[in-house]
Structure formats: C-alpha cells, structure tokens
Computed example of a mutant assay.
Amino acid sequence: MKQKKWMTGLGVIVLATSLAACGDTADDPSMEMSEEQSMDHSAMDHSGSGEVPEGLMEASDPTYPVGSTAMMTADHMPGMEGVEATIVGAYDTTVYAVSYTPTTGGNPVENHKWVIHEELENPGDAPLAEDEKVVLTADHMDGMNGAEATIDTAIDATVYMVDYTTEDGEEVTNHKWVTESELEAMK
C-alpha cells in the first residue's frame, strides 16, 4: 500500500512538473486544475442514455426533486463545477469511488467518482468494504465495463442523474452520477 501511495505521489509530481513546463499558469486561476481534473476524462461518456440499472430505487423524498435545478460543486470532471444542473433522476443507493485498469488498456484510473452498487457484477449486500475487489458493469468510460476494480470509498447516499451545460458550452444529458453533497440549492 505504501508503494502504491508513493507511486501515485510521484505520478502527481511528474504531471505537475510537465504541466508547469507547458506555461506559467500561476497568474491565471482558470488554468489551475485539481488532481482529479488532471486525470484523462477524454474517454468518459459525459452524456448517457438515461437508462438506470435494474433494481435501482428512486428516492422517495430527495432534497432535489426531478425537474428542479441545483448548482454543482462536483469537480470530478472538467467543466462541471459551478454550473447549474437540472435533476432528471434521484436514487437512493450506495455509491463508490473506485480504482481500476481499463479493459481497453492504458493507464489505471484512480478514485473514479462515481459508480453505484447496482453497476457492480454480483455485488452482494451493500455497502462493500474499502479495498474490496469488484467487477464493474458501468460504461461511463471506455474500458470500464468488465474491468476489475478496487473500492476506494463507499457512501450511502442519494445520487442524481443530471443535465447541464459545461463552462465551455458542451451540453451534457443524463450524466451519471452526482451525489447530494456535490449539489447546492440555487440562490
């Protein structure tokens, strides 16, 4: 485990050094990126079909009902933090951050947010323990479906499917998933 953390830290340092070499962004806050934003999300399917996994239960009394709007504070994808989202689905489940190596090859994906319990192959009872191995059935990113993953965190929460427009104008529909803690009431 220490070696994994050491390698992750080294990777972050190398990435930060590489980005710094591309130009001075210290005076331009719009160019700053969080560690999670620096991960390659180019293979992520920002929009979805709107289909939900079998067995997923709609939330009976969500904080943000279907059709309402909320401000997103999530930053696990570029362009989503600080934009208005329209709620298209609200569900009660266990949500996981997971790490996995895509079935299509490429670099491992660390701490991917979010995969829900119903997007795991034969998961058993929720919640699963940290460091437990699972097989993903989600297809949010290329190479995710069928990949073996490790549970990084597990949270029982209401999760939302949302529509939004990114800061650069990309329209995203049926995005899966945003947790309730990543939304704020509109002011």
Rank of each mutant, 00 (worst) to 15 (best):
E171K: 13
P127Y: 03
S38P: 01
V83C: 01
D24W: 05
G105E: 15
A147K: 06
S47M: 01
E81D: 14
V52E: 14
T73C: 10
A43D: 14
A16W: 04
V115P: 03
Q3P: 04
T17W: 14
L128D: 02
S99I: 14
S34Q: 03
A97E: 13
M144K: 11
E32V: 04
H140Q: 12
H76D: 14
T104K: 05
G89Y: 10
A129Y: 01
E119L: 11
A138D: 03
Q37S: 02
N145Q: 15
M77I: 03
A154V: 14
E130C: 01
S49N: 13
P123K: 05
V66F: 06
Y100V: 07
V95Y: 01
T103M: 07
P78C: 04
E171F: 03
S42R: 02
A20R: 12
T93I: 01
Q37L: 08
E182Y: 06
G50S: 09
M144V: 13
V88N: 05
G23Y: 08
V83E: 02
P108I: 06
C22G: 07
K2A: 11
V172S: 01
A129S: 09
Y64D: 13
T153L: 13
G143C: 11
V172T: 02
P62L: 12
H46S: 00
C22E: 08
D152Y: 04
A26P: 04
D45T: 03
G89N: 06
K4Q: 15
L15T: 14
T158P: 13
A138M: 03
D24R: 08
L15E: 15
V115N: 04
M44V: 15
E182W: 07
A43Q: 12
N122G: 10
M33T: 09
T179C: 12
A154P: 14
A126G: 02
A185S: 11
M80H: 00
G89T: 06
E167C: 06
I87G: 05
A147D: 09
E119G: 07
K2T: 07
E182N: 13
W114G: 09
E51A: 12
M186P: 00
P127G: 06
M161D: 15
D92V: 14
T158F: 12
E180C: 01
T25Q: 11
N145I: 09
V134M: 06
S181C: 08
D92K: 13
E184I: 00
T73R: 10
